[in-house]
Amino acid sequence: MREMIKMILVLTILCTVSGGLLAYVKVGTKDRIDNQVLQLVKGPAIRSILAGASNDPVADRFTLPDGEQEIEFFVGKFDGQPKTVVFETFGKGYGGDVGLMVAVDVTQNQIYGVEVTTHSETAGLGARAKEDPAFAAQFKGQPLTKPIQVSGDGGSINALSGATITSRAVCDAASEASQIYDRLKPQIEDKLKSLP
């Protein structure tokens, strides 16, 4: 009996201490990790969509609350005018969430460009969503008034062959972006006006 209590006690204490330590390290490294992801994953994607922008989109950013979550918006200025906002959305892919950076042209209410950021799709099939620029290029100019879908589902995006689920995930993420944009449009415009 004594041994049993000791076993339970030791395991409980170990787990508690371990949990506490991990929470501490997680909180301590959170800012640095966010910063690294911003610099090494999101940053290059944003800059590649907004090639030719007259500002640094990663530096000009703001956050807005959407329901319970906070969304980070990156502003792309062209000829000094804040013409586009970029933000990240997610779609359910074949191997997990597919992250998509969506740039919205706020003057014309259409998509300016997209780029896949993080994914765990199959190499050579789904992974082409990130590697094949022709696939992402189809999203350019898509209007935000209707859901974005692959051609098989009634939309106008040609799916990657052998990667229908991934293609749908990217479309879902883009549609999600248009819904978020719809919901937050007034706030986004306010923020853009107040930019220096």
Binding site: L21, L22, V25, K26, T29, R32, I33, Q36, V37, L40
Partner: peptide, 11 residues
Amino acid sequence: VVELMMQAFTY
């Protein structure tokens, strides 16, 4: 701990 540290410093 190592995983978090590597994410933070050597991404």
